[in-house]
């Protein structure tokens, strides 16, 4: 059973610079050929300040925390039994290469289904520009732990 008393726990915030090389690597890894996501000039011509952070890349920057499995360790979870259940993004401002972003994650909920065979944990993360404080986005991640009958 995941420890319900930890609901509301704030994880250590971290700030990370958006590097254009990482954005190009992400474009390569996802088969993205649109020059807006590869080339600074194409991005500027499209009206962006620099190569934009693609829609789901904020989740990757969240993984760039010095301690990416902090939540899994806090809840004493086994990586082999974890699944990503849901992910959502609410966008307030575009982020681009060169920006420094601050991620503030919080464990907002834990609940179970199927008599405890599946346990869900919800991490909500506020993303702001580290230099200006401007609100960039809100992320919501629902993870699922598969429990076997003995641990259910």
């Amino acid at each position: 059973m995941l420890d319900r008393t930890l609901i509301g726990h704030c994880l250590t915030p971290h700030s990370v610079e958006v590097e254009k090389g990482r954005l190009r690597f992400f474009a390569k890894a996802t088969g993205q050929l649109d020059p807006v996501y590869l080339d600074e000039t194409a991005a500027r011509n499209a009206g962006y300040r620099h190569i934009p952070v693609p829609p789901t890349f904020l989740f990757c920057l969240e993984n760039d925390s010095p301690d990416p499995w902090a939540l899994q360790r806090l809840l004493d979870m086994d990586l082999g039994r974890l699944l990503h259940g849901e992910q959502s993004f609410v966008y307030h401002r575009m982020a681009c290469a060169g920006d420094v972003l601050t991620f503030e994650p919080r464990l907002s909920d834990i609940y179970s289904r199927r008599d405890g065979a599946l346990e869900f944990f919800v991490r909500e993360t506020r993303v702001t520009d580290a230099n200006t404080g401007v609100h960039i986005a809100d992320l919501r991640c629902v993870g699922v732990q598969r429990n076997d009958r003995r641990s259910a």
């Binding site: 009206g47 829609p55 992910q87 609410v90 966008y91």
Partner: peptide
């Protein structure tokens, strides 16, 4: 990618999925 092939990314307000 499917969305940004269609419209500029700055037009996306929310994006959520269930796996």
């Amino acid at each position: 990618r499917f969305l940004t092939d269609w419209i500029p990314q700055s037009r996306i307000c929310r994006f959520g999925v269930r796996f």
